[in-house]
Computed example of a mutant assay.
Amino acid sequence: AYLADVIALDGAFVTAQQYSEEVRLWSPDGTDAVLGEVGELSCLGGARVGDRRLILAGGSGAEVWDAATRTTIATFDPDEGRVWAVTACALSERTAIVAVTEKGDLYAWALGAEPDEPLYEPVATSQGPLEAVAVMTVDGRPRVVTAGQDSLRLWDAAEGVEAGRVLARGHDITAMESAVVDGRRALVTSGRDGVLRIWDESDLSVR
């Protein structure tokens, strides 16, 4: 097995091991526990929604665990294609699990709802695979952010409609993550141009 992905989580680490298909939680002393297995395992995600911390993994589907209890909460399956990036966000009274696939489609499901019923029909956001997804609050609303070669595209997280586009010519984004920078929420991206960029809400607002 080799590592497909690794994330930090409240002083511990979570690894995605391809071929064994195992998601493992590692404590600082080096001991580990298997959270579960995901077919065609390809990516990990972590999110704090309200008081709950979630661990997410993508592959043939999207698997969700409660980080505190280390129990499986839900499993969601796209119509076709592997999940290549996954995250979560709060939508009013619901928690949405957001994923993008190797087919370039955006999916969103609600925790607690029927697993086969997405919040809206899959959105074709790209002609090719999407390997990164993030959620940012922009103009007071949660926006799903996907990356193309020369731009960031924003989607309304609740409805799946496009909500804006920001040019990033020459950046060719390969990875991105929402983070807290100097006490403010920000989007951090890296690209094949060798540059690390930090975007705040004003950078992503529709003008």
Rank of each mutant, 00 (worst) to 15 (best):
W109G: 06
A110P: 01
L111W: 02
G112Y: 09
G112R: 10
A113T: 12
A113K: 07
P115W: 00
E117C: 04
P122S: 03
P122V: 00
T125W: 00
P129T: 08
E131M: 08
A132Y: 03
A132S: 15
A132D: 09
V133Q: 07
A134K: 06
V135Y: 01
M136A: 06
T137N: 14
D139N: 13
G140N: 07
R141C: 05
P142H: 07
P142W: 01
P142D: 06
V144N: 06
V144T: 02
V144W: 01
V145D: 03
T146S: 08
T146K: 05
G148T: 05
Q149D: 15
D150R: 10
L152N: 01
L154Q: 04
L154C: 12
W155R: 02
D156W: 07
A158Q: 12
A158I: 04
E159G: 10
G160A: 08
A163K: 07
A163R: 09
G170F: 11
H171Q: 13
D172N: 15
I173W: 04
I173F: 03
T174E: 14
T174M: 11
T174L: 14
A175N: 09
A175T: 10
M176N: 07
E177L: 15
E177N: 13
V180C: 11
D182E: 15
D182K: 14
D182M: 11
D182L: 11
R184L: 12
R185D: 15
R185N: 14
A186T: 02
A186H: 09
L187E: 05
L187K: 05
V188Y: 02
T189I: 00
S190M: 09
S190W: 02
G191C: 10
G191F: 06
G191T: 03
R192A: 13
V195H: 14
L196C: 13
L196K: 11
R197H: 12
R197I: 00
